[in-house]
Design a protein around this nucleic acid. Structure first.
Lengths: 186, 186, 186, 186
DNA sequence: CATGAATGAGAATTCATTCAT
DNA sequence: GATGAATGAATTCTCATTCAT
């Protein structure tokens, strides 16, 4: 029975994320989520205090996912070039494998009300720590954390967002990795 | 016969963009826009067929603005280094001077329904043409247009989006420019 | 120019009647009528004081049409049997040739607000006068005017209304005529 | 969990029918119905998917009522003359006792969109079966079902519709019955 | 006469949330 | 915990009508 509850909450989250991909934040209502998750609207209020709370909470949780996904792929003993490739390819792969979560997080992070409640830094801290160690060792060029984000994450996300309008993303991705390796390796 | 009031339509657009900055797309309703623009909700339907049409139309129009802003700042006889600096600083400056338009376009471009109707390429074609000429001359490194977008626009937009959580953006911006010059100049 | 005006008003009436057939009275608005008639909504108010007035006025006018149509077909020297056949077939033919007017009048005459303003008696007076003369001559059985309406007009209208759900109306129509002749001829 | 309130739904139906008698279909809005039924407009959507659905569903239900009313009055062992009188008087009485339902059904059945969804035949099938048995026995003249409808129901409905403009309907009604008996009895 | 713009009022419908079971 | 009913408030949008030209 505890299992069933967890399951229910999971279904709610997935329904929400699924709908937001398809219809955008403003096309996603509590009752649509409830219908999609096969629960009653009232049930959603067992788990969340309000729609706003729900969005913020799930956004907070899912914001970490791409970074957790990356952390499972990197190893501290990788070379700097491999690290960069793993991160960039990982970001791209995540956006494909978890299209819904990716789109959800992208949308939420542009939404003024929501983005304030979740800081990018907090989510990416583990991967940043790892990069710091490479920087300390002189394997990766030193620069501010903001520019790590700007160079390591923003460009690949840009490619990922435009994936559907590109014939194939692979050549661009490889080119991007080469450029970043050249730029960031010492 | 009364004639269409251009000023009125402008007020409607500005009200919409203003509200979307403050409250997000899903917090922005036709009646709020009408109130802000000092017109009747019905009047909005004189100019636009539906809320969705309105968003799409204004999104299309405003998507060009940052690139037009850049085009007024670049000169074809600039050196490659100056070109890169002008573009990056221009993007950042635009986001500060036209905070509302910047936030509006960012939000719309993450919204699945809307982003399909406006292609980034179309908006940025003039500036891309210019860059192509630098690439042809061997002043700027050759790479795909997607990676031009990924490197020249995405990172600075990332900084701009996070401006409010940064103490001062200036050092990051300078650092970013240096990195991009190093990377993209031949 | 007087011609053009007449023409414009005619277009308005036809547009209204056409729309009411397709979408019912409550699906028919001034602006839809205007669009269908290729005039401005404001122009409609040149000819009619209000929507209600317009409906009532056109209803009044068109209510007479089926009876005028009949009057052009009957001759005072017809035999009683021929008179009945001509009336019944005429009613049916009218509903086919002027489907829109027929449906419009049927709808309006069931609408409490409208039906009060037009009396059936007034419209049918010419044809009733004719029938009275047949009754006076002893060719057609005497009965109240209400029952003339009830027997000569209501049944054939019933068939006409259900025309689309009948394979072919012709056998029913012939049968009806025979019955009415048998009943009403002396 | 709260359970659906049958009484509430009944109130909604009655409010709708009542309003349609007074103000016509196009003068009857969801909010007026809600007010009349003492529920919230939103509550109506618990029971019906849309206004159109509601009209169609209630029309379908109420279309049967006059025939059910008749069925409670006729007896299979009546003579043919008595059967005709009972049907005709029954129709007339129904229109007086259930003025609202009568007017509602009349209006809906003239409305092109609605009338398609309910077939007269289906509603009247029980009474038609009874008449068929009289026809088989040779007590009532054989004719098509359409002409049964045209002669037994349409004329009396015509009188009923015009009741308010007649001083007293009784003489006409008696006359009509006599005529129909003469015509339809063998 | 003719018009498209403009609008207050109101339409149908949906929303986030609460209630009663 | 879980639910479908219920709803006040809000949504998008249309309406009949008037205005200014």
């Amino acid at each position: 029975m505890r299992v069933r509850d967890q399951d229910k909450q999971q279904r709610i989250k997935e329904a929400m994320v699924h709908l937001i991909l398809r219809e955008g934040i403003d096309g996603t209502s509590i009752s649509k989520i409830a219908k999609e998750a096969c629960v009653s609207p009232a049930t959603i209020y067992v788990y969340y205090n309000s729609k706003e709370d729900m969005l913020a909470e799930v956004f907070r949780e899912y914001s970490r996912q791409p970074y957790q996904y990356l952390m499972r792929r990197v190893r501290p003993d990788m070379g700097g070039d491999e690290l960069i490739e793993t991160i960039v390819r990982g970001c791209y792969a995540f956006s494909r494998e978890h299209e819904e979560v990716f789109s959800f997080v992208e949308q939420c992070s542009r939404c003024p009300t929501l983005s304030e409640s979740v800081s990018e830094e907090e989510c990416s801290c583990d991967i940043l720590d790892l990069i710091h160690s490479y920087q300390a060792r002189g394997e990766i060029r030193s620069c501010s954390d903001w520019n790590i984000g700007a160079m390591l994450f923003a460009p690949v996300r840009f490619l990922a967002s435009n994936r559907c309008t590109m014939a194939s993303g692979e050549p661009q991705l490889s080119e991007l990795i080469r450029m970043l390796q050249q730029l960031l390796l010492c």
